[in-house]
Amino acid sequence: MKFTTTLVSAVLAVSVSAFPVQKRGVDPNLVPQFGIVAGTNPTGTGDCDGVNGIKIPCTCPPDRNSFIQSLSADVAAGHNVNNPTVLSPFPTDGSTASQITRIQTSITALQNLFGPGVGCPASATTFLAQIAALQNAPAGGVDPNLVPQFGVSPGVNPTGTGDCDGINGIKIPCSCPPDRNAFIASLSANVAAGHDIHNPGVAAPFPTDNSKASQITRLQTAISSLQNLNGSGVGCPASSTTFSAQLKALTG
């Protein structure tokens, strides 16, 4: 009996060491959106359009889920797995400094995705524009208090096929609406540029007074920023928010 107890204890010890508990990955809602869609305007030589038309590999940016897994590994290790001299902090609070740090860590994770210096360039995302918008706030960025609330939560009543409930039960992508901080950073970049970065023909005014006209204008700019969040016409529908209802209340 004594031998059996010792044997069982040894087996349990081996089992525990052989199957370590996995650390939890980063919260996907805190990972900045790429803002660029892979494979845009291919040249036929492997290059496609990145931010502001800069040529990038057509495989960039990578699949978001794969990227988040790689980023999570970096953050769990405390440094970039493929480039250990690069630290990988990922604070979770909503401060401007923490938002910037998360984007910076995302950039290094992206650039070292497959090995030291082997990955996707920052120009395969709007990460740098998001950092600039945060660093320039409030001069170049918008006042978060003036950004309308989404009024809808992501991931409500998933169908199992990627769709969830939006306003009045309308089906929307389960990833919509986006993380609010990431949306405000993208909106700020648009306002700073004077137009939607991903759809330059759409102006992005954002008046700051409390008049009804200004509230309407802010909502309209928020809607266009949402709809073009990840590329021209690639984003989240207005039905993933109560923006249209808020407009109706102001114009009705």
Results as ranks from 00 to 15, higher is better:
residue 148 P to V: 04
residue 197 I to T: 14
residue 198 H to W: 03
residue 144 P to H: 02
residue 102 R to N: 09
residue 127 F to L: 05
residue 123 S to F: 03
residue 145 N to Y: 03
residue 98 S to I: 00
residue 155 G to I: 10
residue 194 G to E: 08
residue 197 I to Q: 10
residue 166 G to S: 14
residue 120 C to H: 01
residue 177 P to V: 03
residue 113 L to W: 11
residue 206 F to S: 12
residue 167 I to S: 07
residue 154 P to R: 13
residue 110 L to W: 06
residue 162 G to T: 07
residue 100 I to Q: 07
residue 99 Q to F: 02
residue 117 G to E: 14
residue 181 N to D: 15
residue 123 S to G: 03
residue 171 K to G: 02
residue 114 F to H: 14
residue 169 G to I: 02
residue 172 I to S: 09
residue 183 F to S: 03
residue 139 A to R: 06
residue 151 G to Q: 03
residue 207 P to Y: 15
residue 132 A to T: 12
residue 156 V to R: 05
residue 204 A to M: 03
residue 187 L to I: 10
residue 193 A to T: 09
residue 196 D to N: 15
residue 106 S to K: 05
residue 114 F to I: 00
residue 129 A to D: 15
residue 211 S to M: 05
residue 212 K to M: 08
residue 105 T to W: 07
residue 213 A to L: 15
residue 106 S to V: 14
residue 131 I to N: 00
residue 132 A to H: 01
residue 164 C to V: 12
residue 156 V to W: 01
residue 205 P to D: 11
residue 190 N to T: 07
residue 113 L to K: 01
residue 149 Q to T: 13
residue 175 S to Q: 09
residue 143 D to G: 09
residue 209 D to S: 11
residue 159 T to H: 10
residue 123 S to Q: 07
residue 108 T to G: 04
residue 163 D to S: 12
residue 102 R to H: 04
residue 174 C to Y: 10
residue 167 I to D: 07
residue 187 L to S: 12
residue 214 S to G: 09
residue 199 N to P: 08
residue 166 G to K: 12
residue 173 P to C: 06
residue 213 A to H: 05
residue 171 K to E: 00
residue 192 A to V: 01
residue 193 A to E: 05
residue 183 F to H: 02
residue 192 A to P: 02
residue 106 S to N: 12
residue 173 P to M: 06
residue 142 V to Q: 07
residue 203 A to D: 08
residue 165 D to S: 04
residue 151 G to S: 07
residue 199 N to Y: 03
residue 104 Q to R: 15
residue 105 T to P: 08
residue 128 L to V: 05
residue 211 S to A: 04
residue 98 S to H: 05
residue 113 L to V: 11
residue 105 T to A: 05
residue 120 C to L: 11
residue 196 D to K: 12
residue 169 G to M: 06
residue 215 Q to G: 13
residue 157 N to P: 02
residue 201 G to V: 12
residue 182 A to H: 13
residue 212 K to N: 15
residue 133 A to L: 08
residue 149 Q to G: 13
residue 119 G to Q: 13
residue 186 S to G: 12
residue 135 Q to G: 00
residue 148 P to C: 09
residue 116 P to G: 04
residue 139 A to Y: 04
residue 165 D to R: 06
residue 182 A to Q: 14
residue 215 Q to K: 15
residue 129 A to V: 00
residue 133 A to Y: 11
residue 170 I to M: 14
residue 205 P to F: 04
residue 151 G to T: 06
residue 135 Q to K: 15
residue 150 F to Y: 07
residue 159 T to R: 06
residue 175 S to R: 14
residue 107 I to L: 07
residue 164 C to G: 13
residue 192 A to T: 04
residue 131 I to K: 00
residue 115 G to C: 01
residue 172 I to C: 02
